[in-house]
Every structure is written in structure tokens, then in C-alpha cells.
Nucleic acid binder design. Structure first.
Lengths: 235, 235
DNA sequence: CTTCAGAATTTTGTCGACAAATAAAATGCA
DNA sequence: TGCATTTTATTTGTCGACAAAATTCTGAAG
């Protein structure tokens, strides 16, 4: 006799609890579903994910290592703040990683890498066509991470991924109200130019295009922040 | 009546268990006391640190996030291997971070930063004078991290610190038998030149000196590896 | 009404225990 | 003897519980 209607069927495979909590929380932090500074308490999360506090704590330790939450000793854990006062450090590192990873991709990418990059670009173009800003942000990240991975330098890839994630939070704040649908969209065209330069293994061109791409994104974010700040100032 | 001779006096403050285990294990991994690939099992560590497995596990999760251990699901955790096949990626990132952080230090360092840098340099010079290779490796790291911190870009600082830690493992493998005491030692002089360039806020000079410093270290490591490989080949 | 001290409540850090999964040992069969 | 299979043992992943630290609440005094 097979018991199918247990009171609490395990439902989860052993060892998947931490990964589940980590991935869900990570997405919610990057989508700003969990706002910066908001406290995340362990018992609530444990109830929500229907698991003990132990795997929740391990997921939080992981998130702390990624800089997505801040844990105060003997106090609650809070979602990491976005470091607005030092945003230029973020822009500086982001621009450098755009350039370095695209250059390395031109040097070291394989055919299989190029296929992956093209696939990411296709998915990204779809999200742009749909006008789905959240998907655009996430897919743009995937596209550039794919390029970075083809550059074969895990140190750069990891930092770049972290920067793009942080950018996902910032864009989520400012990008939404400012999207104007166009066909073909400039971002898609820029990506295609980068792909062509990588395929041609033209390192100098990759550097120029990556820098231009980064500068455009940075200046766009800065403009949005400036506009937003103006609105915030009471008269 | 004050009970002083409890059977098991707490000895440790609440919340310090994870930090203790993390720091000790981290040092042992970087000093190669724990060899790459060697398994680290939780119960042994729990007995050794006289604590439960829970804080040990959290420390291991942290170490995994720093890339110092690799956890296989449902299997034992092992000390991370040194990625010899792709060592040039390490050298490339290390050189870039040397340059970038030294440049930024020239731009953004304060007087307090300079004092800290000078203090690190003094400690480093002492370790060189003593011929203490382990201390040299660790103090050299501290010196460059101090410079990076004065550059005010935490993204660069974190990556650089991670690279310097990884370099600590590599140097620990090869550096020991090859140290020749000199006074004044070239490394100390190079550091002093870098300090002067930072103080003068000469960005271009900082870039050149940092690149030269990095190139020297890289070529030295490569020479050591090449020599070692020759010895390893059986005839 | 404000302020400060003490009590009560909440939340975290740690512990011991149990079950699943893997590794190791032992047994059976050809 | 060698190989496959079952059994045992070890190790990890998760759980519930307890104690310490911190926050909140309460109440009394100024």
C-alpha cells in the first residue's frame, strides 16, 4: 500500500532548501520586492518557506557574502542599501568591467560561446519588443554575463555579475517610467555591433563599443537620478 | 557565592563562534596548513573549536562564498584547488587591480589614508628585514589593500583583496625557498616609490609603477613555477 | 508630560538529535 | 578469486528547543 496523502509530504528534496530560499530572496531583493533597508526576520521566512530556521540562516549568510543583505550582530538582518553617495565608484567599476570582459571575449571566445551569446541576445531582443522592462533588465544582465564567461576570466565575471545585479536594482528604481518603445531599439543595435566586433576578434573595436555602451547607460542612469532628485526637492 | 569553576565555562561570547572558526580556517587555508583538495569535515571541526556544527557550517558557507572551499551536495567539503590551468586569468586580473587601485589612491586618498599606508609599509619593511616570508606575504597584502581602500572603490578593493589572498596561497607554494635577503630590499624600495607617487597625486606615474610592480611579481611567480615544473618532470 | 529604570517580549545564536544520502564493509554468487 | 548486491556505518541536511542579547513595554518618579 502506497501512502500518498501524508499529512506533510516532504515536497522538497534534501539539500534544496537553502538553494530555494537563496534564489527566491535574491530575486526579490534585486527586483526591489524587498526594499533596501527592510528587515528580514528568520522566523517569518522560515514559516513562509515551510522550513526550519537553519537553512534560512545559511541562505542569509550567502546573501551577505554577495553584499545583498547586511547582518548586524544579535540584531535583525536588513536588505542592503544602495550606495548612492558613492555611485561613481559603481559606474567606474561597471565601465571597466564592460570594457575588459568584452575585450577578453574577442580574444578567447569559442563557437559554442558565440552561440550562447546569440541566444541571450535573441531573448533580450524579445523582451525589448515586448516592452517588458523587468525582463529587459534581467536579460541584458544575462547577455553581458555570457560575454564575460566567454572571456574565460572568472574573477572578472564574478565582479561584473555582481555589478550588473546592483545595476538591476538601480534600474528598477529609475528605468520603469522612462522607456520608449522603438523598432529597432538602439540597445539592440548596440548589442549587435558588440557581437559583430567579438566575432571579428577586433579587440580595439570591442573596447570602444563597450565603453560607449557603458557610458550611455551610465549617463542615462545619471540623468534619471538627476531628474528624480529635482522632483524630490520641495519648493 | 560566585561560581567560578563551572564544568564548561562559556569562554566564548555569544556570536563570536562563527567569526572565530571563519578566521582560523581562512588563515589555515591561505597558509596552506590546509592543503588544496583536503576534506574538511564538520564534526572534526566542531570538536576542535569546541562548538556545535551549526556555527561551523555557517563559517564554511562564508568560505565557500569567498571561493576558498568547495561544497559538494551531501558530500564532504574540500579546500578549493588552485586553478593552475588558468593562472594567466589570475595574473591579468591582479595586474589590472594593482593599476586601478593605485591610480584611484592617487586621486582620492586622504591624509589619514596616507598615514595608514605608511604604517603598513613600516610593518612590511620589518617583516622583510626579519626575512619572515609568511609575514612578508601577509603584510604585503595588507599594504596594497590599504592603498586600495584609500581609492574609495569597494568593488575594486574586494576583488583585489581576494586576488591577493589567492596570491598568498601561490606564493606560499613557491616563494619560500627563493628568498634572498638584501638591504635595502627591492620590494621595499618599489613600495616607497609607489607611496611617493600617491602622495604626489601623480596618476600616470602610479599606473606605471603599479604595472611594473605587478609585472615583476607575476614574472617572478612564473619563473618559480617553471623551475618547479622542470623538477617535477621525471626522466 | 517627560524621563529613566526594570520587567516582559521578541529575535537571534547555539545546541543536541534525528533522518536522508552517501561511502564503506560484508556477504553471496559465479 | 572476482564481481555484484546487500548491509553497516559515517556524514551531511534539517529540525525543534533553549539561552543570551536586544527591543519594547510598563510604571514610577521628577
Amino acid at each position: 500500500m502506497i501512502e500518498k496523502t501524508d499529512p506533510t509530504p516532504p515536497e522538497r528534496k534534501r539539500g534544496s532548501g537553502v538553494r530555494l530560499a537563496h534564489e527566491v530572496l535574491r530575486d526579490e531583493i534585486l527586483d526591489l520586492t524587498l526594499r533596501p533597508g527592510s528587515p528580514v526576520d528568520e522566523v517569518t521566512l522560515a514559516e513562509r518557506f515551510a522550513m526550519s530556521r537553519t537553512p534560512i540562516r545559511e541562505a542569509l549568510v550567502k546573501l551577505e557574502g554577495e553584499g545583498l543583505v547586511t547582518t548586524l550582530p544579535n540584531r535583525t538582518t536588513v536588505v542592503a542599501q544602495i550606495d548612492f553617495p558613492n555611485l561613481n565608484a559603481f559606474f567606474d567599476a561597471l565601465t571597466l568591467m564592460y570594457r575588459v570582459t568584452t575585450r577578453l571575449s574577442a580574444q578567447f571566445h569559442s563557437d559554442a560561446d558565440m552561440a550562447r551569446i546569440l541566444a541571450c541576445q535573441a531573448v533580450y531582443a524579445d523582451s525589448v519588443a515586448d516592452g517588458d522592462e523587468l525582463a529587459m533588465i534581467a536579460r541584458n544582465r544575462d547577455f553581458h554575463v555570457a560575454i564575460a564567461e566567454s572571456g574565460r576570466n572568472p574573477y572578472y565575471t564574478q565582479l561584473f555579475a555582481r555589478l550588473l545585479d546592483e545595476g538591476r536594482r538601480i534600474l528598477r528604481l529609475y528605468y520603469y517610467p522612462n522607456f520608449e518603445p522603438q523598432a529597432p531599439h538602439p540597445f539592440v543595435l548596440e548589442h549587435e555591433a558588440i557581437i559583430a566586433a567579438i566575432a571579428a576578434r577586433d579587440i580595439a573595436l570591442c573596447d570602444r563599443l563597450a565603453k560607449a555602451h557603458a557610458d550611455q547607460i551610465v549617463s542615462q542612469i545619471q540623468a534619471m537620478i538627476a531628474r528624480d532628485q529635482r522632483q524630490d526637492i520641495p519648493l
